[in-house]
Amino acid sequence: MTQESSDEALCRRVAAGDDAAFDLLVARHQGRAYRLAWSLLRDAEDARDVSQEAFLRVYRTAGSFRGDARFSTWFYRILVNLCLDHRRRGSWWRRLLVRDDGAGAPEGALLDRQPAPVADPGDRIERAQMTSRLWAAVDRLTPQQRAVIVLHVQEELPTSQIATVLGCSEATVRVHLHRAVTTLRGVVRRD
């Protein structure tokens, strides 16, 4: 990647009114944005809508990107905040649908998470069930805990960068991570 086509350079061009630069940024980040939004919202239509809104925010506020952090960190911050806001607004009815036994998990969750290939078919089924239960449990974590887990295990961000994305201290991120993993460990132990 040349310096001219770095995310940060593209963002500066967007701020100057270059729509082609914006299209390039979208093409570059749309896959991760949609996947991250889906992991946090567990609804394809919402993920599509919220990730597009995040790009529109970038379009409107590119001039406020100071460049003291990576573009991806700034963009993740916008996107995660939008997802958390979206969940807060919709949580009253989601809580009614998602029951403690995971029966209310979004349809297709089992199919969407294909198990990793292992030798024994019995192991594979057991692993698929466990994975499904774990992700269903992730969906019932607090929004902050869920965001930390997704950003850590899926986006592979270090805790320092997660702290920047969530706008909190690294110590707080570690506490969220600890509480989330402790809860998920309890799900595994109950089996």
């Binding site: 093409a27 949609y34 889906w38 969407d112 990793a116 992700w135 992730v138 295990v153 998920l184």
Partner: peptide, 23 residues
């Protein structure tokens, strides 16, 4: 480690999307 590794191995795979329509 088992919990984190399991989640990482089966990272979220959202339903497919028509990127042309998205853009």
């Amino acid at each position: 480690r088992a919990v984190l590794a399991t989640l990482a191995a089966e990272a979220s795979t959202p339903p497919p999307i028509d990127w042309g329509r998205y853009q």
